[in-house]
Design a protein around this nucleic acid. Structure first.
Lengths: 234, 234
DNA sequence: CAGAATTTGTACGTATGTATG
DNA sequence: TCATACATACGTACAAATTCT
């Protein structure tokens, strides 16, 4: 591992385990330099990462202060797969593959994804059951060319894990859109709506490290089960 | 202005004006160094900022590529005030101050804000009218001690502008929570709900540069007028 | 209040490693 | 194989904000 990543993850662990408590200062740059036998630039890079990800707040002339650690764990900043999120939150979750088919991008989808019409896609619908209720429908559209061997067996587990570990692709960024929509047929068919007539839709355009678009996903959440948090910086 | 900020904002302008088009490479680090007579570290800092904010994607060994510029303008990453956002989007917007009063934090509010019970607050309700319909209610709770002179006149304009320019405070980060809630009395009173029975609530805990909590805000959006986008990185 | 010490911010420079074409 | 371009890591100097003496 990198030196700055080592420093970063050590401090994250210290914060999560409350060895550095909320409101406390972490060691100064000088101290970290000698602890890790690292240069100032390397230490600063690690601390900058901590600040970007909401762990700390740097104050000129004073030091680096730990923010609330509790929030971090429930945070969705960064790209986190459904499985990773629920592992962290420890909920009773069952995913069921409702459909898996090869399709060609129609006009609307091609526009939204920024690919040519009739591009071969793998379309997967999965229903997420949390604590006994069907509350999320995920509809993935993968660019077929980029995900060979994506079958029902893989879809039943973590697709992201398959893509990164098995195929060796690097996922780098996603544009994310959150909005509300009236329920459609899929929602009524798959979700326990309890009379609610809207869902919250999270759209994800996920890209590989080299910039190629790799999937378009819609996550359709029942209103009362949707929760999103992050940290914004000015 | 800083050197790296200068480089950063020059390139942002070039991207926004399509002088660097989507998918194109921006000048390499070496070229930027000679253009700006800057060191490698300075140039890299500017480009890192571009990537953090979703303008570009760096690829090892190839170059730095411009992502879709159009999305950036409608982006809510970072802390953006209502007024700033609508200035950028060019919508017909009217804000009306529905209430402004001094209150003391009750138990629920004190817990949510992490302040002592009975802390003096300034509570402001504002209704946002977009294209002729009342679609958002903003309910701000400012820590009274930190915002002297915050009256109806100020509230009618941009409160953020007042706080940063007049009071000289630096806003640095906010924890943001997005969820859906059933409509409450405020929603029914102030919004044109058209029969919708839920709203999307954006909660903001905004902090100053020195880490002090400074306001808690609830923005209650009519479902069909809510839209949020950002870029997530893994 | 002045000055020293500490701490983060900006900027420069160099060397070497790794990925791409 | 070689050139180009980004990644990591080292080092230095001075500026600016805060705190301590």
């Amino acid at each position: 591992m990198n030196k700055y990543n080592q420093i970063y993850s050590d401090i994250v662990a210290d914060i999560d385990n409350q060895r550095f408590a909320q409101g406390e200062r972490i060691p100064s740059e000088t101290e970290l330099m000698s602890q890790y036998q690292a240069s100032r630039g390397t230490v600063r890079k690690a601390v900058d990462m901590l600040q970007e990800r909401g762990y700390v707040q740097k104050i000129h002339g004073k030091g680096v202060y730990v923010l609330k650690p509790g929030n971090i764990e429930f945070q969705l900043s960064g790209i986190v797969s459904f499985q990773e999120m629920n592992d962290r939150m420890g909920r009773q979750v069952v995913s069921q593959v409702a459909a898996l088919e090869a399709v060609l991008a129609d006009a609307a989808l091609a526009r939204q994804m920024g690919v040519a019409e009739a591009t071969p896609l793998v379309k997967i619908k999965r229903v997420r059951n949390i604590d006994g209720e069907n509350v999320i429908v995920d509809i993935n559209h993968f660019v077929a060319e980029l995900v060979p061997g994506l079958d029902a067996g893989v879809a039943a587990g973590s697709i992201y894990h398959y893509i990164e570990q098995q195929l060796g692709l690097t996922i780098s960024y996603a544009q994310r859109i959150i909005e509300a929509q009236p329920c459609n047929e899929d929602d009524r068919q798959y979700l326990d709506l309890n009379g609610m007539d809207h869902v919250i839709v999270v759209k994800n355009l996920t890209h590989l490290y080299d910039g190629r678009l790799f999937e378009y996903t819609e996550s359709r959440h029942r209103l009362d089960k949707f929760y999103f948090t992050d940290i914004a910086r000015r």
